[in-house]
Write a protein that binds this DNA or RNA. Structure first.
Lengths: 366, 366
DNA sequence: CTGAAAGCGCTAACAG
DNA sequence: CTGTTAGCGCTTTCAG
């Protein structure tokens, strides 16, 4: 700490260090360190601890976390890897992570990969170089070299909203099967017999799980099982959702409802409805997945599977804390409960008659 | 770097350090450091540099940023302070910041204040303890003790989406006056004579600037100037926007259009439209500000003032870089251009006659 | 152009 | 309970 004269007093120019605190308290820096750290305070006498703490306050001492990190090889920071923060699904998850970690003194280094594997490698590398104490990944794919590297290393890692079997990586995911089950049951109960599914990328666990659940639920409810009622998307994007619905419509298949793999895909469906003058839910019911913020503001408000975004993040953070504490890692999925948010985008199918609507689209001419 | 035997070869257990690279290249660590750092590479012979770089690659050496930070007193990380990442306005701004800083090796520590000053103080404290090289604040208020503290310190700081006069803090803000001017002009041209304004918090620069601009524009266009057509909000929240519109409607004032201080307030207006069966834009036109992601998906799609979110963040980051480079700071506002995104929430006023619509609401009975 | 030496601020062994 | 000592991994003087 550098002091310079200013008039008849002195002002400090640089930030006070532990040495300064120790000097003021009349103890050795090591003792000051012990007194200031709650975990080691018991090693000092109450009197000493008191003097040191008072000195620290007087100097407005703030421990230099960088120095501490270098010494302890722990940085009290966590890397959070998401595809894109502007996708409204992720901010609530991030806030859940923050809520669980900030009280314990961790800071979040957030990076966006834009689903670019090369960029992801690079970003994760930069996070490791900053010696983050752990990593929360929302970008896991089923075939993902990086995950294998991470699984082989000893940095604590938790996956959120994605699982990856066969590797010792814990994950926190929504109950995809239950969610799709609820969606299909809801539509079946409304009278829908021919339901289409716009499936998400099959290199993501959610894409696969939801498609599989869709097939199972359709069978269970004895609804139309037709391969042509399923359209797959290459990414979880609005554009892909739109493309998929267009293809379904153009294929001439008849269906009165569509379950999109997630809300972004459902948003794409909405675009097509507008384009083609299809009225939702009168002509076509639409269901999404995730209950992203603001889908309740759409018109018609989107019926979707609600997942506990915040809790997903918080639980992932808790798993990470456990992992950092116990140095053990294992494949372990936490399934978060979901529910169906029924809104205006679903209603009875257009034709009250039990027969299928005419071909050429969802009950529409042409 | 620790090596342990594994069969007839060895595997490395710990991460390689500069010493290891130097040893492999047969030079002193200091030389290796110089060779690896582009800025000091010229101090080494091409041959040495080559050998060192090759050794680093071979060992997959990654410099330890923490050690570097301790030595250089720069952390290559930047603190980003936002009210709430789940407000869709902020993710694009954050991505703009990231886009400008990540290529230069900076990582982002993002914190959410929830508009809680105490929490904000604490979080900024924790960022400083992590010796961030600079701070980008999206939370500035007009009366804000923290800003004065920061302005007095020597940590580079830039404000984004908010300005604060009287302190040497550069800021990047949208052209609020121009935006409101465009909105009023658009409505005036559609034939509106009585326009209401739902003003944002008057302790924020944007709240003040937009209200002032509204008054000026209304006068310029010779529209109804009535204090009772202005309702103020305590926060930029949907709930406050709804409350404000309800009060305007209940006051019995007549108006055919409302300009909300931002899109969150406009969203609150939409809630009230639903509640009261008011048809937008037939009964009431609504304009927002910010063009938050997804407001184009509302029905009716929201007419709003588009601000360049990404550029706002990127420009703030650039100003910060300049500040970090030149150690100089000054009050300096960068005004970002805006434009009006005309969508379906605005249309001609309900009464084609030039006279004001009947009292009791925006052209509605009761 | 390269090596030696020092030290950023902190904590953890080890003595006493 | 407290002081001494050492060193985390890097960069930057200062010599040579």
């Amino acid at each position: 700490m550098l002091l310079v004269p200013a008039g008849d007093s002195v002002i400090k120019v640089s930030v006070p260090t532990l040495r300064d605190v120790a000097a003021l308290a009349g103890v050795h820096p090591a003792t000051a360190s012990r007194a200031l750290n709650p975990d080691t305070r018991a090693m000092t006498s109450a009197d000493t601890a008191d003097r040191v703490i008072r000195a620290a306050e007087q100097l407005r001492y703030r421990p230099n976390t960088v120095a501490r990190s270098l010494r302890t090889a722990r940085s009290s920071s966590i890397g959070v890897v998401v595809p894109d923060l502007t996708n409204p699904l992720f901010p609530p998850i991030v806030r859940g992570i923050e809520a669980a970690l900030a009280p314990r003194g961790y800071a979040l280094l957030i990076v966006n990969t834009d689903n670019n594997p090369a960029q992801e490698e690079q970003l994760v590398g930069s996070l490791r170089a900053r010696s983050v104490d752990g990593l929360i990944l929302a970008t896991a794919r089923l075939s993902h070299p990086l995950l294998e590297t991470l699984a082989a290393g000893d940095l604590p890692v938790v996956l959120v909203n994605r699982r990856r079997e066969g590797l010792p990586l814990p994950c926190v995911i929504p109950d995809d099967a239950a969610g799709i089950g609820l969606a299909v049951a809801h539509l079946a109960q409304l009278g829908h017999r021919r339901i289409a599914h716009i499936a998400g990328p099959q290199d993501t666990s959610t894409g696969v799980a939801r498609l599989r659940a869709f097939r199972a639920a359709v069978q269970e409810h004895e609804l139309a099982q037709d391969k042509a009622l399923i359209s797959q998307c290459g990414s979880w994007s609005e554009a892909q959702g739109a493309r998929a619905l267009r293809e379904l419509l153009d294929s001439g298949m008849s269906f009165s409802a569509v379950i999109a793999g997630n809300d972004m895909l459902a948003l794409g469906c909405y675009d097509v409805l507008g384009e083609r003058g299809i009225v939702c839910p009168d002509d076509l019911s639409v269901v999404g997945f995730n209950d992203m913020p603001f889908v309740d503001k759409l018109r018609p408000a989107l019926t979707t599977v609600r997942i506990p975004h915040h809790e997903l993040g918080a639980e992932a953070a808790r798993l990470l804390l456990g992992q950092m504490k116990h140095f053990q890692r294992q494949e372990h999925s936490v399934l978060m409960p979901v529910e169906l948010s029924v809104r205006q985008s679903t209603g009875p199918p257009p034709a009250a008659s039990p027969g299928p609507p005419p071909a050429g689209g969802p009950g529409l001419a042409g």
